[in-house]
Amino acid sequence: MNIFRLAADISHAVAIVLLLYKIWTSRSCAGLSLKSQSLYVAVFVSRYLDIFRFVSFYNTFMKLFFIIGSSATVYLMAFKFKHTYQKENDSFPVLYLILPCIAMAFVLPYEYNPVEILWTFSIWQESVAIFPQLFMVQKTGEAESITSHYLFALGSYRGLYILNWIYRYVVEDHVDWISIVAGVIQTVLYCDFFYLYITRVIKGRKLDLPA
């Protein structure tokens, strides 16, 4: 564990809590993509099949937290506050995201066994899972400020992991190419959003996109 990875995991956990807080307090999931949230559940479940292999208490706790937190989000959106879900705006064709990730999982896993193939799928799927949400923000031209904070925390997390990978390469000689390449792609996808967040939301304005 190093400071970058800890900061990244905290940022990731904060993102999930922020989203649950927003949905629960506003009793609404307006502006949120159920497709993105469902992809995250798929990501966590397929990645954490090794949850019973003990690495550390921290590791197990965080895995459980991510699976439960993302599942709770999907439950609230798909059932409890379903009447507030704006299905018509959540129209990104997700098969275009899922199929290439399945292909990557079979073409380039570290090893050919079900756990490794699912792990590889989860890494690639996570890198593009935010697409339907960003598409929704783009389509409606706006995002509530708490949704913006959520996206910022979620985007920062993989960016901080890049610092962690650099640190681990230098200090521990540890390299995980699949995570690194997918993580860089994931972070780059947020760049446009980061720019808008810093130039607008931090200055107290709403995230309204130019027409």
Binding site: R5, D9, H12, D50, V55, S56, N59, M62, K63, F66, Y110, W119, Y161, N164, H174, V175, D176, I178, S179
Partner: peptide, 10 residues
């Protein structure tokens, strides 16, 4: 030989 990647990250 290929070094095994230890999956200790989240």
């Amino acid at each position: 030989d290929k070094a095994e990647v230890v999956k200790d990250e989240l």
